[in-house]
Design a binder for these strands. Structure first.
Lengths: 133, 133
DNA sequence: CGGCATCCGTCATGATACTG
DNA sequence: CAGTATCATGACGGATGCCG
């Protein structure tokens, strides 16, 4: 248990089947946007089909108009969702996942599912950490 | 294609097999931390075993000492990683995923894999959006 | 080597009010 | 209903310097 047998990270060699984590800063940018708190929730809430602006504002709950608008616009620019406006009165606008967006759905739901499943564990750990461990 | 046949979101009824997305604000908090820009990358880079502080600072690449320290501490408080310090000279400190952290690994790698796979698509969409589409 | 504390700029976010 | 515009704040993040 001296730790001496722990081999160094084999300098120069990457981890074996390593993820292309440091694939460049663009990947980081995308990851940052996709991994965004609001983006995740918006995408997740579109997993059952097109939804209206007001609907999203209700279910995401806590998001401000500004953030919802911005998030939707960004997701649109990234080709993850598509906006459809109907020229009616009252106006109706719907947002739906594009094929690209749907391909992301699996990862997003996995993440949210995990959080839903383990949030109590985390709560305990946090409490313990605050107590001084 | 008039869009008139689009049925309303069945007011009052939730999505059928819906995710517990609005499970409370604590889920949101956890999701926010886990979805944090650096957390994802740190967790991903621990997927092959314990890693040293300096190693992480190199591979995450772009993270500052401050952010790495903060991220590691928070992940520790949440019970996702574990810190092990060896009383040697020079000092060596290693971080490793806890079982809880490993359970998150699947979702995290899915997300990162997706980004790595589709970042070029997104790049195109962004360019097109900026052009005015 | 690994880490923490402080200072300090900026940028993202939320609240509010207004428009098509 | 579905946004846009404006403003204020505060959290985030970088740089620096010190400590175990």
């Amino acid at each position: 248990m001296t730790g001496d047998m722990i081999e160094p990270p084999t300098p120069g060699a990457d981890d074996c089947g390593r993820l292309p984590v440091e694939n460049g800063e663009f990947v980081r940018q995308v990851l940052d946007r996709v991994g965004d708190k609001w983006s995740l929730l918006v995408i997740a809430n579109l997993h059952n089909g097109p939804r209206r602006y007001s609907y999203l504002q209700q279910v995401v709950d806590g998001i401000s108009q500004r953030m919802l608008t911005l998030t939707l616009r960004q997701l649109g620019e990234d080709g993850l969702i598509e906006r459809t406006a109907y020229a009616e009165v009252p106006p109706r606008v719907e947002y739906a996942l594009t094929p690209l967006g749907k391909s992301l759905l699996g990862a997003v739901t996995s993440l949210i599912q995990w959080v839903s499943t383990h949030h109590s564990d985390i709560r305990e750990y946090r409490a313990r950490a605050r107590a001084g461990s």
